[in-house]
Nucleic acid binder design. Structure first.
Lengths: 185, 185
DNA sequence: GGACACATGTAATCGGTTACATGATTAC
DNA sequence: GTAATCATGTAACCGATTACATGTGTCC
């Protein structure tokens, strides 16, 4: 998914500035689709405007550059919906954590322990974000409820699994670090 | 994670050619870390060799270009291990499927149904790959057992969730498509 | 006869990141 | 005082993809 489609997707949920789009793609709900930086968002937005898929309205502010609030047009919405109907790309999961886990026996136990803790914290943070969302949004799209529940279920499962099996992974690292102790056990 | 690190990671598990590295990164076990194409792998391998992190040995074959089998050196292994000790990047999950789910109410029910089916098939295929792996590899790294079990657990959970809640998502699309029928129910 | 797996490599291109440029306001 | 948030935009750079170039063996 390109930054272009990302902008369209976010704007289909409501007006936003380039700044806000970046925030949503990095932290917010849309982090599950693509994250992008300013350097790609601003040019994408300008191009979308020249193509008539979005419109801009400037809101001057004292001291700051004027906010440029973008809205999706009918043409933009149509392109977005039709892009969703095309054959979807497969979901991907990239895990630096699993690479550490895979090599647990070659690493110092503290590194493995830290990796586990980082991953746990990350999952918990995502869970927090997901459960927070449901308060403020009064069900704008019915799909967002389903999606949120799906996310919460997966994150909860992961968290439990990590808590239940994390020690086993640390033990792999410890046993490899001092095989004698392991043999004595 | 760069293609460079990916090559080192794969070679730390055993010798391989550029062709094999690509296969493992696209389909195989290493698809959880990064996938890369020939255009990036061959130059990366050449550079790693010039830096002394890997060695090559050519195996001539009749009719085909000679296989260039790469092996990791001690220096390469050291760099790989030390890269794992550095603060890890967060795990990421990118889901074209969830974008469709999020917009279920705006889409034709068949599109949603197809998306669900595609995702289900994808998870099942990953599961098959994971369960197959455990036969042929006679526990080379202890970490690979843990990683595999983790993957199987997550995939199984996802599969069950999709089977149990898929219909609800399709219903969202159907109700939005024909609100009268929904009201009559 | 055509598609696909094997096998390596280069060049053009492109999408995106990083760094730069600018600057007020608010919180610690 | 210093960091973070708000706010936009450009230019240099870079990593990676795509397409191209070449060629055999095997399966359908």
């Amino acid at each position: 998914m390109s930054v272009r489609s990302l902008c369209l997707a976010i704007l289909s949920f409501g007006d936003a500035t380039g700044y806000e789009i970046r925030k949503e793609s990095t932290d917010g709900r849309f982090s599950y689709f693509e994250d992008a930086s300013f350097g790609s968002i601003y040019p994408a937005l300008a191009r979308l405007e020249s193509e008539g898929l979005v419109t801009v309205r400037e809101e001057p502010q004292a001291g700051k550059p004027a906010r440029k609030v973008y809205s999706i047009t009918e043409a933009g919405r149509a392109e977005f919906i039709s892009s969703l109907c095309e054959p979807q790309a497969p979901d991907t999961f990239k895990s630096p954590f699993l690479l550490i886990a895979l090599n647990a026996a070659q690493l110092p136990p503290e590194v493995v322990r830290r990796a586990l803790e980082r991953r746990r914290a990350q999952v918990q943070e995502e869970l927090r974000l997901l459960t927070d969302t449901h308060k403020d949004t009064a069900c704008p799209h019915p799909g967002s409820g389903w999606t949120r529940d799906y996310g919460i279920a997966c994150m909860n499962f992961t968290l439990t699994y990590l808590e239940e099996h994390g020690e086993a992974l640390i033990k792999i690292a410890e046993d490899a670090a001092s095989p004698h102790t392991a043999a004595a056990e």
